[in-house]
Amino acid sequence: MVTLKSLPEEELFLAGSTACHGCPSSLALRIAFKALGSNVLLIVVASCTSVLQGSYPFSAINVPLLNMAFATGGASASGAVAGYKALKKRGEIEEEPTVLVWAGDGGTYDIGIQSLSGAAERETNFIYFCYNNEMYSNTGTQRSGATPLGAWTTTTPAGKPQHRKDIAQIMIAHGIPYVATVSLAYPLDFFQKMQKAKSIVGTKYIELLAPCPPGWKFPSSKTIEVSRLAVQSGMWLLYEHENGETRFTAATKKIIEGKVRKRPVKEYLDMQGRFKPVLEKPEGKEAEELLERKVTESIKRLKGWVPEYI
């Protein structure tokens, strides 16, 4: 059984980075490295993680790292995987490293989707990790295709009128061998999904909901609590998809099985300043109800993939 005690002590994300207080991406990297070990090539596409890894000539990342252009996550991984394959064939390396792409939601949902889709279709053997902070945080919090309905960003000052798309479902539709969602509030679930992704050959897509304190406007001490409430309210559903079947995990599983009551979306919204502009308006109630309906719809859609619940 995986317990906190059994997790590796070694830190491959080094203290004293350039990350903001309470940054979800730095914490996610720490946990991901614990699961994957040090034989990893990390590919970071333009995002906050390009910045929080530290400033030249030093780096907080203690594995080989390539900083690549915004749109190129899937393509960069394809090149790296092919390169390692050639090196192995020539006998220059013994074991091919795990190729791990680390991209934001902008780099995944928006500009990076074609490159990711191509890599998945080519059955490239890598892990694509999207840390979804639901906005373009690095350039000053603009809206993305992952921003939920009602959320303030600098380009949606009155709250975003559209809801986010569901890219994990798009990745499931690619027929890749492993798709999973993770949360920082459930670190053991996260750790195990990363380990599983490492053990599977082919394209693996993992997505983290990454509450961003300055962007979402909550205190830096609350990153975990916001992550937890996202899951408990159904705004972020934890599951893994393998061999054509979806399995709910952690708190989401308990909610779906009726063992734990789902908390109202309103509680999650109230924790964050980014929903204040919309909630203060008369339409606020409507936005809240619409989000509640979106949660029900997402669960319904996912259940379609869960044989035992049909």
Binding site: L14, G16, S17, Q53, G54, Y56, F58, S59, A60, I61
Partner: peptide, 8 residues
Amino acid sequence: SRPAKGCA
């Protein structure tokens, strides 16, 4: 860049 603690 080289990995080091305290890069910031």
